[in-house]
Write a protein that binds this DNA or RNA. Structure first.
Lengths: 144, 144
DNA sequence: GCAGTCGTAACAGTAGAGGTTGCAACAGTC
DNA sequence: GACTGTTGCAACCTCTACTGTTACGACTGC
């Protein structure tokens, strides 16, 4: 499927900011988050930018700038994050239009479309069941 | 997510072979299926090769060669096809190991791994609910 | 004005999907 | 035994998306 790590990194960043804020800090920098996720600050800024457009985080510029949560972790679900960072559908149709003169070529796309929509709806439902507070709780529960 | 069309094309091919066999033919060629799917025969042969390794189809060589179903469409589910053509997980972890000295960096992977496993199990369950006979029925039910 | 951070563009590297060509292997038929 | 049609498969190309990296302007508190 050529899976990507966008949802994972986004959840990592949100959990990090949430924990940091619980420890009394106001804003987290992309540099700090990138160090924890072992990646480049620009990667974090790009992802957080998408989360900002989705209303999940806010950013401040200038000296003492950085990122903060726009909502409580309890009110954020993995579905919110998924929709913010994963635009496309899970399964793709044919890259070129199938032969419309063939019965199968004609009917396959509406058939699969309908099936895929049901499956994606279930996926979204599952993602919506997990809040970022759940994620942070699980993170902190990991054995050391 | 950079979705691919492998599951769609594989389902298309199976539905095509199934319908062709119902019409009394013994084997279908990759050329015929490729024409219906509007793609290259080699693409079809590659996909059907994976389905053959999964025990869903059989191939004959020589003159009058081609592909036939190894099982009834009724006993084949989209999960069988999915497992045959989509090896990897739905969501990827970090490409590099997160900072194990950080609480979040240390706990994020087991936390997300567990969540992802639950979600993928639900996905598989949904895929298993749809048989290829269902797909072919929906295909034939499409308005013309 | 300075310093620290975001915002964003630009580019490179990597990986996978999909398309294409070419050809050996195979198995029927003449 | 030659011919024919198809699979099996390797090799290569193109395209796209993700990720990483560098660079630099924009912003804002001091």
């Amino acid at each position: 499927m050529s899976a990507n790590s966008r949802l994972t990194i986004a959840a990592h960043a949100l959990a990090w900011i949430g924990l940091y804020q619980r420890q009394g800090h106001e804003v987290a920098t992309s540099e700090q988050i990138a160090t924890s996720a072992n990646t480049n600050p620009v990667v974090i800024r790009r992802l957080l930018g998408e989360l900002r457009r989705a209303g999940l985080v806010e950013s401040r510029r200038g000296v003492g700038a950085g990122w903060s949560l726009a909502r409580e972790l309890e009110s954020m679900t993995l579905l919110d994050v998924y929709e913010a960072v994963e635009p496309g559908p899970l399964f793709a149709m044919h890259r070129t239009t199938p032969d419309q003169g063939c019965v199968v070529g004609h009917g396959i796309q509406p058939a699969m479309q309908s099936i895929y929509e049901g499956i994606e709806e279930t996926l979204r439902h599952e993602l919506a069941r997990v809040t970022l507070a759940d994620v942070l709780r699980d993170v902190l529960a990991a054995p050391r």
